[in-house]
Design a protein around this nucleic acid. Sequence first.
DNA 1: ATACCGATTGGCT
DNA 2: GCCAATCGGTATC
Length: 210
Amino acid sequence: MSVDERLPREFFARPSVEVAPELLGRHLSYGGVTLRLTELEAYAGEIDPGSHAFRGMTPRTQPMFGPAGFTYVYFTYGHHWCVNLVAGEVGTAAAVLVRAGEVVAGHDLVRSRRGPVRERDWARGPGRLGQALAMGREQTGLDFCRPPLGEPIDLVVSAGEPVEAADVRVGPRVGVSGPGGDGARYPWRFWVDGEPSVSAYRPGVVRKRR
DNA sequence: ATACCGATTGGCT
DNA sequence: GCCAATCGGTATC
């Protein structure tokens, strides 16, 4: 497989927990910017209290139940757009949250969007990453597995350089606890050891079941 | 119709 | 380390 070959839909049509770690080191390109992915988190449906889809399908979470290979972009805390890559089979809620990356192309674009912050902070955290890529509401439902259309706005996830297993780190997801704190028990956060672009860990807040 | 909350970030102590 | 900002989604009445 050549380095820039697009990952096929079959790659994503598996449980998000399998897909997420294998995305480390891969390239995500959109609108003239390319990131080397350094941090991802897996989210699932019914069994995962930390998932938006835990309580079933809603208009917002519908993409998570759909076919793999499409984006699910959500808005949070009144400010931030976070990018997910939908995984799994149709009818199952599964997605991979893209939490951080290293900019490998499109430096000028990202610099203009992120302002005077250190380069390692350009896409360090899901909100910053969304800003670096200029992705928002309009970018939900993009098909990143279809044949390339040749448009510069096309979203591509390509092979890049998969990370050695010894360099993959695993731990609890950031800011997630879910009802009773159960969301934190899943070690579904994956990152590249020693990468400065990986976001800081913050524990989730325990919530009561409603 | 209304109230509550968040898969975060940046600024201040 | 702590906390306000800010608003769409979701649940509840």
